[in-house]
Amino acid sequence: MIGSWMTLPLVLVAAPPPPLDPDPRASPPAAAVEADPKAEVPPLPLRDARRAEQAPPPDVMRAADNPRVPKAKPGPPFYDAADEAVFRARFDLTKDPAPPPRTVRMRCLVADPLCGITVEVQALSAYALRAQQGSVATANARTWHSARAQYDVWVQFPAVVRTIGRTRFNVLSMGPKGGIVASDGGDLWANVGLAMRAFFGKGAFAPHLEVTGALAFRIGGFTEGGAGFFGAGRTDLGPVRSPVGFAMDIGVGLGGFGSLVIGGQYDSPLAREEVPESLRTPAAGMFYVGFRGNILWGAPAAAAVTTHVLAGRLVVPER
């Protein structure tokens, strides 16, 4: 893409101005040279110069229509269909390259080895073993069983492709991702990071490996008398601060539909010396195992919402 952008100025070459007559760069006529060898080239007529200056801005012109751009000539590097036929015969290939193996499902809204750039909304529902460090003096770290629901937006760009015939297959794609993580007690985190997916095959259900890594940070949680996020609610859920931690996971799955995921998250403590005691937060984190998939086919979204609801109803956090 960068190459085509860099050639844009060439594509936008101005339409040729009307032919200039006489050409100021042409050599003087032989008769003039014979008469006076030091004779100067006749200057460009003023009206032509003005006409050239006042010409309207040229419209877009493609390179092939522009007489100033050299035309492609047969032979390297300008291969045409006839050249390709020669090459295919030389290497005992069939006359025509293989057609695309199949059509793309769901217009690339769900990742597929046949798709290039994809935009996905992923939902994770997982069991989580959470932990939180207590007082350093008593070393009373606390662990409890909980759940994790996560909704992320992934934008994936192909980084490594495999080509068969005229068809490209996505082997490795990566790009930015971000979203919301939820657990029991109204705990909410956001995350900003990178996601990567590798396909091990070309089929609609080709196995894949997903790896994600992100900065994770608290954005919400229990705040007594907090009046909600926007200051107008009757809830104890409100904004909560934390330093930047991180979350990473690995998933294996089929065809971009869904993955079994195992991962972990670490919440950094806020315990600098100059921070007052009432504002400090302990180190915390979780390990999680679950299922992640694209919300467009429904099941991952339903599973994540159910997981979140069960975490809110069944897990009673310590305050």
Binding site: V121, A123, A149, L237, V305
Partner: peptide, 14 residues
């Protein structure tokens, strides 16, 4: 994303 999160919080009683 925001809607599904809010739905989980609301249905979860939080």
């Amino acid at each position: 994303v925001a809607g599904l999160t809010a739905l989980g919080l609301w249905a979860g009683g939080v």
